[in-house]
Nucleic acid binder design. Structure first.
Lengths: 215, 215
DNA sequence: CCTACCGATCGGTAGG
DNA sequence: CCTACCGATCGGTAGG
């Protein structure tokens, strides 16, 4: 439905290689472009942050970026994909830890608060620039995002079975918990707010119900 | 600090009149422009939604808008200010209702979930286009937003005193509760999700601790 | 409220 | 990886 350039290349995931085997230098160079793009988008947003800006930081001309990236939208996709992959890895090690359901859910909440409050403007890019993805890239992102959500839903479900949280739709509960923590990027000011205290409050708010010996 | 046009007019709040007394027709016309701008920004975002778009919907030329509005940024401010005022009114009647602390906090949560899930794309404008405000307008918005936050903080505090929520920083708790509910605009799909069920889940998640007779 | 238009920005391409 | 450039968009202004 959405207008899409009818390119002659056959079938291919978003952002696959231009060369059959990208050289190491090529990949390194592209990584640094992705780094820079993230910084530019953090500071100026996706719309206002231009490819000229990105190129300038790297001492290049805009046209040169097109050797590494096929479009601005693809560059945004690279920024996203890399970050999501890293976040998923961290989250998976976290949920596979050998702990009680309650401890695991608490860890999930704490983790998300700490990560977001550590660099709120980073999440301005991830949470607010989503609509700018081309439909092609968007699907890819959604898949990984759903995995992220499922990890939270599982955390909630385990906890519910252990009797800490009562009968709530796990998907709704997961979205609510994620919302509670993610929203942090909208208001958290590292120079004024205390991430630890906030994490405590978040855990308290959701799990405070059961057995808390508040000190 | 931020670059600002050095205009010769003396002191004046953002968005004040051009005429000493704007005529009724003038105000009406401007309201319809604000209506339209909201629709355009909802559909295309602030950056991509052009003044040409807004004018076209109204059967006008872009230049004509400048009779009613001094800049695109001011138009965004008008959109915000009107919505915030309405939201504040609703919230204030809600919190002044004669109910127990627990009922009041529950009402706050329910209200926010219902409002946001009713029209998620509306909140895409309010929550994600904030950075586009001129510094001059931003201050005005912040003031009202803080009032909004305070109403939530009060709700949490009252509840804490009644013993439902334990010792949590009221401001953090308020932000967390607001985040939990506001985040809805990022994922809620009216054709798939159930706002009532979500509201239940949200109330449950925060207040489920005390006396719930889950049916 | 309109016609006409400016100045600037920007993504992307040609062609090397 | 660069120079040069196109085509389009856009906010805003002049002047009526």
């Amino acid at each position: 439905m959405t207008a899409k350039a009818p390119d002659q290349s056959p079938r291919r995931g978003p952002g696959r290689p231009r060369h059959e085997t990208p050289s190491a230098e090529f990949l390194e160079r592209r990584e640094s472009i992705i780094d820079t793009a993230l910084e530019v988008f953090k500071q100026r947003g996706y719309d206002s942050g231009s490819l000229d800006d990105v190129a300038a930081v790297l001492g290049l001309r805009k046209a040169s970026l097109y050797y590494y990236v096929r479009s601005k939208a693809e560059l945004l996709y690279f920024v996203f994909d890399r970050a999501i992959n890293r976040a998923l890895e961290r989250l998976e090690t976290l949920t596979s830890a050998d702990e009680s359901p309650r401890q695991r859910l608490e860890a999930l909440i704490r983790h998300q608060v700490m990560v977001v409050s550590d660099d709120p403007s980073l999440f301005t890019v991830f949470f607010d620039q989503r609509p700018h993805h081309d439909g092609e890239y968007e699907a890819e992102i959604q898949k990984k995002e759903r995995r992220y959500l499922r990890l939270y839903a599982q955390g909630v479900t385990d906890d519910a079975e252990a009797g800490v949280l009562t009968n709530i739709d796990p998907r709704y509960a997961a979205q609510l918990v994620l919302g509670m923590t993610n929203w942090t990027y909208k208001w958290f000011d590292p120079s004024r707010d205390d991430a630890e205290a906030l994490a405590d409050a978040a855990v308290q708010l959701v799990l405070g119900s059961s057995d808390v010996d508040g000190d």
